[in-house]
């Protein structure tokens, strides 16, 4: 549905040089997919998504949407093409001088009769759950309601693609969830292809089928959400995983010498991560039984992505040295990533 080919875009920078906001990025988004693009602030995500509808014209590269090369269109044809590419923003960008109804009607203005338009606007407001807010001005709506109006407005011309630039970043967690649910529902109901730009891991986990990780203007990792997050290849991807996982808290606990993680001689702190989709065995009880080691779960963080568990556990294993080794190799053979974080006994405990 969307094909970006070797897109580059730089901006003149303050100092007189230039910032390469996007460098040679290629990306394909299939029809009906929800593609996430995650990256920290300044990674070039907004620039990239704005290149899709040519709000930003790339310096190099081609953009295709629905098989049409947008980068080759005349201004007039591009405007027509944009009607089929909806976009929503972090700051909602509603027209303050128009009611919710007026905002949704805006893109329809010339294309239909009054009656048809009224019917269409009513249907769109119903679709986003705001049928009774038509007369409200944006200043009278909550953040979540504003974004719903923006979504209805973006869908007015029945686009096949919806671009979301940090659409939930200005919303509280609860509202974020309700907007994400709405996007997912639209994806299923209308077969809408959605590109979601975010710096929040939660958003990607919640609705994306695929994810691209951006850093310094480049896509450093891309794939289906489970594979990328189960077996991250890049440090930045791990950093993102850590933002929502408490598995990384272990380092803080060790640093502050928490009693939770004080080791006796022979004990080890181990991090286990599920990296394959087929983990279903009761691994902890299996190793306890089979190898006669004790596994004390310090904490766990396991959730389901696409129906498969992802995340892992921090455990302290104790037992005979060689038994522990065999237990760990057994786990490795079951496609669990095993990382010994510490085997230093606490001196005061010793």
């Amino acid at each position: 549905m969307i094909v970006l080919q070797n897109i580059s875009k730089s901006f003149p920078s303050e100092g007189g040089g230039s910032v390469e906001a996007v460098r040679n990025v290629s990306l394909r988004v299939g029809k009906g997919e929800i593609q996430g693009v995650i990256g920290f602030s300044g990674a070039g995500k907004s620039t990239l998504v704005r290149c899709i509808n040519l709000l930003e014209r790339p310096d190099a590269g081609e953009v295709f949407v629905g098989g049409v090369e947008l980068t080759a269109l005349s201004d007039g044809d591009l405007r027509a093409a944009r009607k089929k590419i909806g976009m929503i923003f972090q700051q909602f960008n509603l027209f303050a001088s128009r009611t919710a109804w007026g905002n949704v009607a805006y893109p329809l203005q010339y294309s239909m009769t009054r009656a048809d338009r009224a019917e269409k606007v009513a249907a769109l407001l119903r679709l986003v759950g705001l049928e009774d807010k038509g007369d409200a001005y944006p200043s009278q709506l909550s953040g979540g309601q504003k974004q719903r109006v923006a979504i209805a407005r973006a869908l007015a011309n029945e686009p096949s693609v919806l671009l979301c630039d940090e659409a939930t970043s200005a919303l509280d967690p609860q509202t974020t969830l309700s907007i994400l649910r709405l996007l997912k529902e639209l994806n299923v109901k209308l077969g809408l292809t959605i590109v979601v730009i975010t710096h929040e891991m939660q958003v990607v986990k919640e609705i994306c089928d695929r994810v691209a990780v951006m850093e310094n203007g480049e896509i450093v990792e891309e794939g289906d959400v489970f594979s990328v997050f189960a077996a991250p290849k890049k440090q930045i991807t791990r950093d993102f995983i850590d933002t929502t996982s408490n598995l990384s808290k272990i380092h803080a606990l060790i640093a502050e010498r928490s009693p939770l993680v004080r080791l006796k001689p022979g004990e080890r702190i181990v991090r286990l991560r599920y990296v394959e989709k087929n983990v279903s065995e009761a691994l902890i009880s299996t190793i306890s039984r089979k190898f006669d080691v004790n596994a004390n779960i310090i904490f766990g963080d396991i959730e389901f992505l696409g129906g498969a568990p992802i995340g892992g556990l921090i455990i302290i294993v104790s037992g005979q040295e060689d038994r522990i080794e065999s237990a760990l190799s057994f786990l490795r053979s079951r496609n669990v990533s095993v990382e010994v974080i510490s085997d230093e006994p606490d001196r005061r405990a010793a």
Partner: peptide, 21 residues
């Protein structure tokens, strides 16, 4: 707000449309 202008552009509004509407 520049964002509002951008939203109008993203909906395919022409320059005239953006000026008047």
């Amino acid at each position: 707000d520049a964002g509002v202008i951008e939203a109008a552009q993203s909906m395919g509004s022409s320059t005239t449309g953006i000026v008047f509407r």
